[in-house]
């Protein structure tokens, strides 16, 4: 799959934005927010920081739209801005949301059954992801969650395809290890 050369309307929308139609940019934001938002949340770990990074990326993209030389591939270009923005956010921020989920459960009385399993599984995945080196996490998410081709990831991250394959392989091994550890705690 990969970042598709989406329908010509991306190019058309970019053209309209360049002509001053801010509403057209709203359409682009609406089109990409959920997918990019998912990447930012998983990459950064903290929901609020992720939304801030996402918002910032959309604004940066708008302000530098003149440098989007292939408007039909606006999505891929925007992805690149977000990937960079997530990198600068640095280490995963304090996990306010995850702490909150635990506290809420505590206040509610202990969660039980399927819900408890789900919360535990979500928590374990978050912890495992957080333990990955950022470049491993980035490559893993872009390859397996965002379903991009290695060539597209190379374009976004500036890393070579073979290095990316190695990062994804290491990420898979480490995730498996961390989750096995979690099962035995």
């Amino acid at each position: 799959m990969g970042i598709e050369r989406v329908e010509s309307s991306d190019a058309e929308l970019v053209r309209r934005v360049r002509a001053g139609d801010i509403g057209a940019y709203g359409a682009l934001v609406s089109r990409y927010r959920d997918r990019l938002g998912r990447y930012a949340v998983h990459m950064i770990g903290d929901h609020e920081d992720a939304e801030e990074a996402l918002q910032d990326s959309f604004v940066r993209a708008y302000r530098s739209l003149a440098r989007c030389y292939d408007p039909a591939r606006f999505g891929a270009w925007l992805y690149g801005i977000l990937v960079n923005r997530c990198r600068t956010t640095g280490a995963r921020a304090a996990r306010r949301h995850r702490m909150f989920v635990r506290d809420a459960d505590a206040l509610n009385g202990a969660a039980h059954g399927d819900q408890a399993d789900r919360v535990e599984w979500t928590d374990a995945i978050e912890r495992a992801l957080a333990r990955l080196a950022p470049e491993y996490r980035e490559a893993f998410l872009l390859k397996h969650v965002e379903d991009l081709e290695y060539e597209a990831i190379a374009e976004l991250t500036g890393a070579g395809v073979s290095a990316l394959k190695m990062r994804v392989k290491r990420a898979r091994e480490q995730l498996q290890l961390y989750l096995r550890e979690a099962e035995h705690v």
Partner: peptide, 22 residues
């Protein structure tokens, strides 16, 4: 922040008090 926590499934009262404490 409270609205987002509620949207993610938190009980409203708990979401509020935890956010205040934070």
């Amino acid at each position: 922040a409270v609205e987002r926590d509620i949207a993610l499934g938190a009980p409203p009262g708990a979401a509020t008090s935890i956010r205040v404490n934070a």
